[in-house]
Amino acid sequence: MGAYRADEDYDYLFKVVLIGDSGVGKSNLLSRFTRNEFSLESKSTIGVEFATRSIHVDDKVVKAQIWDTAGQERYRAITSAYYRGAVGALLVYDVTRHVTFENVERWLKELRDHTDSNIVIMLVGNKADLRHLRAVTTEDAKAFAERENTFFMETSALESLNVENAFTEVLTQIYRVVSRKALEVGDDPAALPKGQTINVGDDVSAMKKVGCCSA
């Protein structure tokens, strides 16, 4: 087990949810981010599980409380209750299984039905290491993300590609929204910058900076 500190000091606590079809790699994204672990032998998530990790944004400590939800439709009656209070979401699909990308629309709808309109959403195409099995093109996903005003990234939890970036980007964006909100007394929900696309492999150096909390 990773020995992260559960009760460290932090300036902000953000709740982030991981959603998407069964078997797309949500739990491995979470374990890669919070403990730098990946398991080919992972089990299906039952109900909701969670983990935390803190990162630095500007000079502030941002603690992410990340809720990993079961992918099966049956569990949504339970898991949707956990959307409450979420300020960020990673909506994950598997780039090798097209049907998981087709279902993104339904997930997005459910997310928007249950959360605040300010929520920061990132579409995440996981398993990008399986290049020969790719069934969803980067262009299609990017176009979808632009249309839906979400961020977008392709990741590989196995190769640790872009996992840090995806989470860090979401947390940073949330931080920007929150700190801007704190400045502006007139609360404008439309102020959230959306529609930006982050390219795969752009900012690999960022990975070296973080990872402080995995033992």
Binding site: G23, E41, S42, S44, Q72
Partner: peptide
């Protein structure tokens, strides 16, 4: 059936 076939390979994987 698809859900079951996703879960069978990750049943007691250890």
């Amino acid at each position: 059936l698809r859900q079951i076939s996703v879960d069978c390979p990750r049943t007691v994987p250890d």
